[in-house]
């Protein structure tokens, strides 16, 4: 509850801060619309040749694009800006201010910057996803909806934990911004269902960089193709990664307190 209030404060500050740079909104909107155009155009091209891609129907792929934008929007709005700020703080020593606050440092670090204009991705995702869901409507019962919500949540948590762990490396290596760039380019692969990729890449996108859990898995929940094993696998992985990333974070803090100047 308390952290919720804190988050609300950061959110408000994000709005205030970005109101100062209004042009950003239009640039981001343009960028996101372009990206959406490319995504939808890609789908259109593919489906003029075939009506089935790796077992996925057009509407299911539309749902995937929606999920891709939704979670991508969350990453770009909250996780990535906060993690960038965190890495900057490590480099400049201003992390000290966060660590002397009487609140959980991991939470503070994770919600500390909200790039509100990036929400356009989420705004774009909603109509795309709604359209897809409506067209798939017949197959969507309460169970599927619940499964969808659960996989969406665990997918977000998986990506969050993963990015947190990557960023935590800043404690040891200080300059690790490039890791984020690498992640974001891997993330782009999530625009397509992982089943279309060769086995090795599928394995990479599932286990090494768990993009699949945040995109393909929730999207397969709406198209009713998700297996129970995948569902529980996703939940278990989310829980495990949350714990591991927490542990890793603490390790990083301990290192920082032990060695930094």
């Amino acid at each position: 509850m308390r952290y919720f209030r804190l988050f609300a404060t950061y959110l408000r500050l994000g709005v205030l801060g970005e109101l100062e740079y209004r042009a950003n909104f239009w640039i981001n909107l343009l960028q996101s619309l372009l990206e959406l155009g490319v995504a939808l155009g890609g789908l259109a091209v593919v489906f003029t040749h075939t009506d089935n891609l790796g077992g996925w129907q057009p509407d299911e792929l539309l749902a995937l694009v929606g999920v891709y934008f939704l979670i991508g929007g969350l990453i770009r709005t909250l996780i990535r800006p906060s993690m960038s700020k965190f890495m900057e703080d490590v480099r400049q020593g201003t992390l000290d201010f966060t660590l002397t606050k009487p609140a959980d440092a991991q939470v503070l670090v994770s919600i500390q910057r909200v790039e509100i204009w990036r929400m356009v991705d989420v705004l774009i995702a909603i109509p795309v996803l709604s359209t897809a869901l409506l067209r798939l409507g017949a197959q969507l019962g309460p169970a599927e909806t619940l499964t969808f919500a659960v996989t969406l949540l665990s997918g977000s948590l998986i990506i969050y934990s993963f990015l947190l762990m990557l960023s935590t490396c800043a404690f040891w290596f200080v300059r690790v911004e490039n890791i984020q760039v690498i992640f974001m380019s891997m993330w782009q692969a999530g625009r397509w269902p992982v089943s279309i990729y060769p086995a090795w890449l599928r394995a990479v996108l599932t286990f090494l960089v768990p993009v699949a859990f945040a995109t393909t898995v929730p999207a397969s929940a709406v198209s009713g193709r998700i297996t129970t094993a995948t569902l529980f696998g996703s939940i278990a992985l989310a829980a495990a990664l949350l714990l591991v990333s927490r542990w890793f974070w603490r390790l990083g803090i301990r290192f920082y307190s032990g060695a930094s100047a």
Binding site: R5, L6, T9, Y10, R12, L13, L16, G17, E18, E20, Y21, K101, P102, A103, L108
Partner: peptide, 17 residues
């Protein structure tokens, strides 16, 4: 916080503390 008025950083600390 660099881009926002000082009083808003104060508000943030109020929430944190």
């Amino acid at each position: 916080v660099w881009d926002i008025p000082v009083i808003d950083t104060f508000e943030l600390n109020r929430a944190v503390y």
